[in-house]
């Protein structure tokens, strides 16, 4: 049996008296595309925050690529190959679109002061950033301020920024939130077209059609626990999942 790329073993996260994640275990093989579903407040974003290091764990352990990352600080997890996007988009708004991508490029990331040895933005930085922007159809906006982008484009820029770090595992937190049907389809095409840069992926989504299209495996969560796991068909017909969605008023399963 191969070792999983990501192995989350019975983690929990509590805020004061509130439990966001309760004894959750998820593992993921290299190449997996995992869909994470569940009603609002189920603990999906908290899971991403725990894996990427935005939250410190209350219990349990996380192994990534053979290393125990349970207590590693944010930047070390980033360097190991974890990259993410945010439910509430967090771009560097006062920087340009190209700069947002360029700053995240792996070159010099570990030795920031070495980059001082070269003058100027550097043609290779510009080229690498433009390549990534072209991949998400934003090349013509390269010199605009990131803060001026409309919603859908801002989400794509966040993905490009995450890809600039050459992640081994990309975590997308509700990438289609606020998008219409057409934009959602385009995003799906973007992700497929750039599959070469996305070795493995975890996607949080409410859009069930999107999850069916993109994921090889689905995990459903509710009240901070895993309630079902398997193929999309298995999970979405699981009685507890149906009930959780009905309970949350989202009966369109």
């Amino acid at each position: 049996m191969t070792t999983p790329l990501l192995n989350v073993s019975s983690i929990s996260k509590r805020f004061g008296g509130v439990t966001a994640i309760d004894d959750l275990s998820i593992s993921l093989l290299a190449g997996d595309r995992l869909g994470l579903v569940g009603p609002n407040g189920a603990g999906k974003t908290a899971f991403v925050n725990c894996v990427t290091g935005f939250y410190t764990l209350s219990g349990g352990a996380i192994h990534f690529d053979g290393a125990d990352i349970s207590t590693l600080p944010l930047h070390k997890r980033g360097r190991l190959g974890l990259a993410r996007t945010f439910q509430n988009i967090r771009l560097f708004k006062r920087m340009t679109v190209a700069e947002n991508v360029a700053c995240a490029l792996r070159d010099y990331a570990d030795r920031p002061f070495l980059s001082m040895l070269r003058f100027g933005g550097g043609a290779d930085f510009v080229k690498a950033a433009r390549d990534l922007l072209e991949r998400v159809r934003l090349a013509d906006k390269a010199d605009q301020l990131a803060g001026s982008l409309p919603y859908g484009e801002a989400r794509r820029l966040e993905i490009a920024r995450a890809l600039a770090t050459r992640p081994k595992l990309l975590l997308l937190d509700e990438p289609t939130a606020g998008m219409n049907e057409q934009e959602t389809q385009e995003l799906l095409a973007d992700l497929r077209r750039n599959a070469d840069l996305i070795p493995s992926m975890i996607v949080i989504e409410h859009d069930i059609a999107f999850i069916r299209e993109i994921s090889t495996r689905v995990v459903a969560m509710d009240y901070g626990r895993k309630i079902a796991e398997g193929s999309a068909d298995e999970v979405f017909s699981h009685p507890q999942v149906v009930e959780a969605y009905l309970g949350a008023g989202e009966a369109d399963v």
Binding site: H75, A83, R84, R90, R161, A164
Partner: peptide, 12 residues
């Protein structure tokens, strides 16, 4: 602009 996001991109 955003320390935490910058850190998650791998900046120390």
């Amino acid at each position: 602009e955003d320390e935490r996001v910058a850190a998650s991109l791998g900046f120390d």
